[in-house]
Amino acid sequence: MRGKRRVIRQSAAARFLHWTHTISCLLLFYTGLALYLPRLNGLAAVFGGLDGSRFAHRVCGVFFIGIPILMIIFNWRGFVNFLKDIFTWEENDTTWLLRFPIYLFRAKTKMPPQGRLKSGQKFADWFIIGSSILLILTGIAMAFPANFPKGLVQWCFPLHELGMIILGVFLLGHIYLGLGIFQPYRGAWRYMFGDGTVSEEEAKYHWTRWYEEVKGKEST
């Protein structure tokens, strides 16, 4: 599929945000896991013990929160476009989403054509972003408990863990599909981690309607 014409899929800004979030999120998950159960405490040894891993958790948290905020401020249009992308729901979307569980186990299942984002991507984005916001808000209260009512801080512990579980499960799916371990998605890692382009062939396979739109614009 190389050598053929490629279509721009992800902007440099989107890839930068994705890179920084990949790193901060994985480190946050790892350092958080060290406190999940006493028998996982050993994971913290990489950071010189639990004090070090807690400090690392907070430093990563600053990046995890700060970079999207800066991006929203300095790339407002990109943010608005992103919101439009994830909150549009087109006619095929429900069908696609309902058929996805079958497709996951039987990749040759015929799927309806999709726009710029597949409905499954949008669905996952809601949960990934929603749980991230939950993790951020509860995390802030947990890091500065003296500034919040005790009852609120107490509820932040289970909610932080709930956020971690939701995000963790969706990220496992995101990694499996996004890295292209799932066979029909081979090469998909390049859209975000590579140069941000997708071959015409792959674009047509994944997002048929979007691809046709892009082609239509090019030819006019």
Binding site: F105, A107, Y176, F182, Q183, P184, E201, Y205
Partner: peptide, 14 residues
């Protein structure tokens, strides 16, 4: 689930 999905789709071609 993802491991099963992977195993069931080995050899898939577009």
């Amino acid at each position: 689930a993802f491991a099963l999905s992977f195993l069931l789709n080995i050899g898939y071609k577009h």
